[in-house]
Design a protein around this nucleic acid. Structure first.
Lengths: 242, 242
DNA sequence: CGATAGTTTGACACAGCTCAATAGGCGTGG
DNA sequence: CCACGCCTATTGAGCTGTGTCAAACTATCG
């Protein structure tokens, strides 16, 4: 039995054919011949929860597209206090071009699958393909917008609002095929309470207490610590403080 | 008496000849003919302290280079709580390409001079000039790094560390010709106590108290509320918590 | 079924907030 | 030049939200 050759896919490397990043991610900027060049030097990998992808102040040899799972980007003060400064979902691009050393720590919050390529190759292709650099600019601007939104959460919201904001963020990002604006949303939390605390600038205990309040008030339901049902998105949004 | 025609400057528009942004800013990406095209549709303006440059959810018709002064970028919650999410100094680029509506508020924190141009023109030039888009990407990545650094300050530092971090930020950015790593640094604060509080996620009173402590401990000196002398940068750095 | 890591709950402490009063800087007008 | 008023900043006193420490509970997995 022959595999039907789809015209659209005929020149696309096998590695890329089923890849999300080719559509919504960075690789969408590349034409088939560029995809072939990139795919020859790229590799897919699956990493387990907790493994460090990029260390702070470490040389970075590869960039990646996130294909599935959640990555946490964090910074640590000298005395060990930690702050998560961003979460990355598929099909985000992981890496900081034009800098050899990372200024932050990237760690798999869940099991994560990646498609990685050498930094040098990406930077070379960026010179040749303005469209690639354009996509990267668009993603970077998006991340900057998100970072600034989160600064409001960190600086001006109460613990209750912070936790609601976090649940809202996850509800909106974790399900790739999210039917927006439906009342009830179900997902597994990609982060532990400790991670959530580090993301919100709170302690584990405060996060836990606020989750309990949301549960007792019937805004959410929780099963076995990780599995969350948002009973009513609107109420959650109201609790997140605009 | 003739003005000597410098070869380097001979084709540069008058408007641009003394401009900082042509060297360290975005315009450095442009060749003389592009500079001429841009300068024909650009204009310099000076705006006074407190005037709003871009309103939240407002249509943006022009982008600008900051030539002098300080701009604060802020976001406001429904009930009026405010957070400053970034400060811009010369020769930063003010604007958010690829979005017609602003998601934040830009206001002159001091008297500010700007060189402005129509958004449409910049976006057209970006298509033709990858170098321009490249510079914008580099600036955006820098702002993202800064935003993430500040998230650590907002989420994990104490009030004392926050105020020290703020003074450090200003000391490092306000003086264009800063002789780095000299022990004593003098500057005028570009922000009121209320602005500082909104930047740090604190109240005016807490900011004031922490400044008083720094003053009494001899780390800084303050004259007439705005004029600050950092007596010892190293001590200030230590108080900022890494 | 016990071990371990993660989570919840409780009691208490304290950093930073709120409200209120005072002090200082600066421009205006006598 | 001083007197006044306005605005901003400082200082004080008390309160409260969130952190700290400690203990109990729960899920998961061998």
């Amino acid at each position: 039995m022959n595999i039907r050759q789809d015209i659209h896919n005929s020149e696309i490397p096998l590695l890329c054919q089923a890849c999300e990043a080719r559509h919504r991610g960075l690789c969408g900027a590349l034409d088939p011949s560029q995809l072939v060049a990139l795919s020859k030097q790229s590799w897919k990998q699956t990493v387990e929860t907790g493994s460090e992808l990029v260390g702070d102040a470490e040389k970075v040899a590869s960039y990646s597209n996130v294909l599935s799972g959640v990555i946490k980007l964090s910074k640590t003060l000298a005395d060990g206090r930690q702050q998560i400064v961003g979460l990355q979902f598929a099909p985000d691009f992981l890496g900081r071009p034009f800098k050899t050393e990372s200024a932050l720590n990237a760690e798999a919050a869940t099991e994560v699958s990646l498609c990685s390529f050498p930094t040098a190759l990406v930077e070379r292709m960026m010179k040749d393909s303005p469209e690639l650099e354009h996509r990267l600019l668009v993603q970077t601007l998006k991340e900057l917008d998100e970072a600034r939104d989160w600064m409001v959460t960190l600086g001006r919201k109460t613990a209750a609002e912070k936790v609601a904001s976090f649940l809202l963020l996850i509800a909106r990002n974790i399900n790739p095929c999210r039917p927006l604006s439906q009342k009830e949303v179900v997902f597994d939390l990609p982060l532990t309470r400790a991670d959530i605390a580090d993301f919100l600038g709170l302690t584990i205990e405060t996060v836990s207490r606020q989750m309990t309040i949301l549960r007792k008030d019937g805004v959410i339901a929780i099963e076995s610590n990780r599995h969350v049902t948002v009973r009513n998105m609107e109420r959650l949004e109201r609790r997140a403080g605009a």
